[in-house]
Nucleic acid binder design. Structure first.
Length: 375
DNA sequence: TATTATT
């Protein structure tokens, strides 16, 4: 039976993968501009609205594995925190490596900059600075520059670009062994408009003394992952949990699965289907008239239906999702259900997503059994 | 020829 299913399998809809990727893309929009602060001082507020310009900090270059709790603990050691947030990818839950801390007392914000900026955490040096007022005008202002003369320093690159606006960060990538410039770098401007002007003025131009023109364009947004990057992430966070020769077949299956998602190619063999089936603990209780019901456990209280669509959609036809909520608080009680039409797609989703890390939680995903409601 | 800076 499994062999038959493997042969007749319909590939997961590519549009679903596109959907999950596009959801991760940063929305670009034009919005009102606001004042920016002095380069070394707190930003100025644009209007009479709540002014947190002297209390709200942005923290960059955080270690990938730092949790919200560790983040709060570190900055809470300075003074009372009004609010703080470690920013994560909405879908994968992975830390984006930066966060915000809003202190009650401006003096504590100042103290945090003085004591924590430059702190070394696990090969990283964190940066603590005042957050600029949030505005659409400061988004997508990061430029990717290539073709730079190998001799050009970061300071020289900044000098070249500074005529177009205030530079927030700059970086020249270097060979990890020799330390020599790779001729590519990044420039982040305060405003997107400034970045646009820099492209107009510098793209295709030769820096004074250079023999080759440089290329200046908007940098790829880190959340605009390619299908490959996303799938590679999925693969790493699922298959890697299984070690040892006995699970080799399982890992092979997962890799095939992810390659299928990426390229829409059928690469299944009956043996891999069999090995996966035993892994997923398949029994027939997951089946019902409307398809295959999947139990998803360890969702966060904030989880909603969209996250289930995003997680399971790439694996194939999803007909229904449901987050179970507490009647009083309307918060998710930690689990939900997903119904998928095709057995094999459901089994693939389970094999790939069981053990998947969503935020700081490890999901448990299985076919629904008759007595799982008490979980 | 690609790091992770705006909730």
């Amino acid at each position: 039976r499994l062999q038959l299913l493997a042969v007749n399998r319909s590939p997961p809809a590519p549009s679903c993968l596109q959907q999950i990727i596009s959801t991760m893309e940063t929305q670009v929009s034009n919005g009102p501009t606001s004042n920016s602060g002095l380069p070394n001082g707190p930003p100025l507020s644009a209007n009479g609205a709540a002014d947190d310009s002297k209390t709200n900090l942005i923290v960059n270059y955080l270690p990938q594995n730092m949790t919200q709790e560790e983040f709060k603990s570190l900055f809470g050691s300075i003074g009372e925190i009004e609010s703080c947030k470690l920013v994560r990818d909405k879908i994968t839950g992975q830390s984006l490596g930066y966060g915000f801390v809003n202190y009650v007392d401006p003096n504590d914000a100042d103290k945090a900059i003085n004591t924590l900026n430059g702190l070394k955490l696990q090969m990283k040096t964190i940066k603590v600075s005042y957050a600029r007022p949030s505005s659409a005008s400061i988004r997508d202002a990061n430029l990717y520059v290539s073709g730079l003369p190998k001799s050009m320093s970061q300071k020289e690159m900044e000098q070249l670009f500074s005529q177009y606006g205030r530079i927030i960060t700059s970086r020249i990538l270097v060979d990890q062994v020799t330390g020599v410039s790779r001729g590519v770098g990044f420039i982040r401007f305060d405003k997107r408009i400034e970045a646009e002007e820099a492209i107009k003025g510098l793209n295709g131009q030769k820096p004074l003394g250079a023999s080759e023109p440089i290329t200046v364009k908007f940098a790829n947004n880190p959340s605009q992952k390619t299908g490959q990057a996303l799938l590679s992430h999925l693969y790493q966070t699922t298959a890697r949990r299984y070690t040892g020769p006995l699970h080799h077949q399982t890992q092979r299956f997962r890799l095939d699965n992810l390659l299928n998602m990426a390229y829409g190619v059928k690469r299944f063999s009956p043996i891999t289907i069999d090995s996966m089936t035993s892994l997923a603990g398949v029994n027939l209780t997951g089946a019902s008239s409307g398809g295959w019901c999947i139990f998803v456990y360890n969702l966060s209280p904030e989880a909603d239906e969209s996250v289930l669509w995003q997680l399971f959609g790439p694996f194939g036809a999803v007909t229904n999702v449901k987050v179970i909520r507490d009647f009083a608080t309307n918060k998710c009680k930690g689990f939900g259900f997903v119904t998928m039409t095709n057995y094999e797609e459901a089994a693939m989703a389970i094999a790939s997503l069981n053990g998947y890390r969503l935020g700081d939680r490890i999901l448990q995903v299985s076919f629904k059994t008759s007595k799982q409601h008490k979980a």
